[in-house]
Amino acid sequence: MTTWSWIVDDDLWALIEPLLPPWPEGSPGPRPVPDRLCLQGILYVLHQDVARQLLPLEMGFGSG
């Protein structure tokens, strides 16, 4: 886990993860950022009121 894992802690993730659809088998291209990191990035952007493009890559939330 990243240093920012507190945004979506284990208890919250245990509630959310079963609600997400599985990644389709045979989808073209590389698999995107893991769902938990994606959600943490979305919540960070909303909470900090920053543009998605300004999300620091070193946080590990984006694919670049």
Score class of each variant (00 low, 15 high):
E58A: 13
R36D: 01
D10R: 11
P30N: 04
M59S: 04
W6M: 08
A51Y: 15
S5Q: 14
F61I: 01
V45D: 04
Y44L: 13
P56D: 03
C38N: 09
S5C: 03
E58P: 02
L54W: 14
Q53I: 09
Q53D: 15
E25M: 08
E17C: 04
M59G: 05
R52W: 14
W23N: 09
G60R: 00
D11I: 06
R31G: 07
I7G: 00
L43S: 02
I16C: 06
P24W: 13
P21W: 09
P24Y: 05
Q40H: 00
L19N: 08
P30L: 03
I16L: 10
V45T: 09
L46Y: 08
L37S: 01
D35M: 03
D9S: 12
G26I: 01
R31T: 13
D49V: 11
L37W: 01
P18I: 09
L46V: 12
P56F: 00
L37E: 02
S63M: 12
W23I: 12
D35G: 07
P28N: 09
D10Q: 05
S5Y: 02
W6H: 15
S63N: 15
V33E: 02
Y44W: 10
Q48L: 06
V50Q: 11
W13F: 09
R36G: 00
V33K: 09
L54M: 14
S63W: 13
P56E: 00
P34Q: 12
W13K: 07
W4R: 09
R36N: 02
R36K: 08
L43R: 02
G64C: 12
D10C: 04
F61E: 03
P28H: 06
Q53L: 12
Y44I: 03
M59I: 11
P56S: 02
G29R: 12
L12H: 11
C38K: 08
D11Q: 15
W13D: 04
V8L: 07
L15N: 15
D35I: 10
Q53M: 10
G29E: 12
D49P: 07
A51D: 14
Q53R: 15
G64L: 14
T3P: 14
D11F: 08
P21C: 04
D49G: 05
V8G: 00
P21D: 13
Q53G: 14
G60C: 03
W6K: 15
T3L: 08
P28G: 11
I7W: 05
D9T: 07
G64S: 11
L57Y: 09
M1N: 08
V8T: 06
P56I: 02
